[in-house]
């Protein structure tokens, strides 16, 4: 599978074949960026998923190391959500190899809380054994939602529901956290807060994250590595070695974003940035 040679920010060019372990120049500027020696938590090789004979994912290669934050970008309908569903174990009509950790959790675009269970029961849903409420309370406190623990989901605001959904994912102590456009349905301000929360949680938990999104800025803001999916494969890979917390006003940030947008077929605008609404 041919992938592009990307342009690393650090200046030391190296091949970014997604199938190979990224051994060479992982400049560890971000502190929490996993080192090359970290074990692999996702190994996908020659993965194919076809709908009615039309392959949406076509012999895809992907490796994610423990503790790595990977963002997956792509045009609408390019198969990025399909890939996430496959990794979540929700879609088994596949060919090829896909190895994922046993402990994984998903947060969807819609919070998908069970409306008939109070928030804390939603958080504990599906955990093995008979977990105590305190377990849920701890997870809810981590996302800043302990005061809504006894509430019905219908009384939560959009941001609160999404945080509850995150708590439900985190309480499983996943090695891999799959996020399917979790900020897509939030308003701009809530989204900024939610992105920061995810950033914090990831740094604290140290689990690998695969974030599916169509927001380039969000991807560059959060991820160690941004993948662009096209024609059923990872068509482009971009390391992001900016220090955290990242500043979208940083010229390097803008350069990365412009490059990725071009990859997605959006020409660089002459003047204004693509999404001025999220100025930090």
């Amino acid at each position: 599978m041919a992938t592009d040679v990307h342009r690393p920010v650090t200046g030391t060019p190296h091949r970014a074949d997604t199938a190979s372990q990224d051994t060479a120049g992982t400049t560890d500027t971000a502190g929490s960026t996993p080192t090359a020696s970290a074990p692999t938590v996702v190994r996908v090789d020659g993965l194919t998923r076809a709908f009615d004979g039309r392959p949406v994912i076509d012999r895809l290669q992907l490796d994610i190391r423990a503790g790595e934050f990977v963002a997956l970008l792509g045009r609408s309908g390019c198969g990025k959500s399909t890939l996430l569903r496959i990794l979540a174990g929700l879609d088994r009509d596949i060919e090829g190899t896909a190895l994922v950790p046993r402990r994984k959790a998903v947060a969807f675009q819609a919070p998908r809380l069970m409306p008939w269970k109070r928030v804390w029961r939603n958080v504990l849903l599906g955990l093995p054994g008979k977990p105590e409420r305190a377990v849920a309370e701890r997870a809810l406190e981590e996302v800043g939602l302990s005061h809504r623990s006894h509430a019905w989901p219908k009384t939560l605001s959009g941001g609160e529901a999404q945080r509850a959904s995150l708590a439900r994912a985190l309480v499983r102590e996943p090695d891999l956290l799959l996020l399917d456009e979790p900020f897509g349905a939030l308003d701009a301000l809530t989204r900024v807060k939610a992105q920061r929360l995810v950033d914090e949680l990831w740094q604290r938990r140290g689990c690998a994250v695969l974030l599916v999104t169509h927001d380039v800025e969000e991807a560059v803001l959060l991820a160690d590595r941004v993948l662009v999916m096209d024609d059923g494969v990872i068509a482009h890979e971009q390391r992001v070695d900016l220090p955290r917390p990242r500043d979208i006003a940083d010229p390097r940030f803008a350069a990365l974003r412009t490059g990725l947008l071009e990859r997605l077929g959006v020409e660089a605008p002459s003047a204004a940035p693509a999404a001025p609404s999220k100025a930090a």
Partner: peptide, 10 residues
């Protein structure tokens, strides 16, 4: 979607 969420929760 809820059934799928339930599945993903194990």
């Amino acid at each position: 979607q809820l059934i799928e969420a339930g599945e993903s929760l194990g």
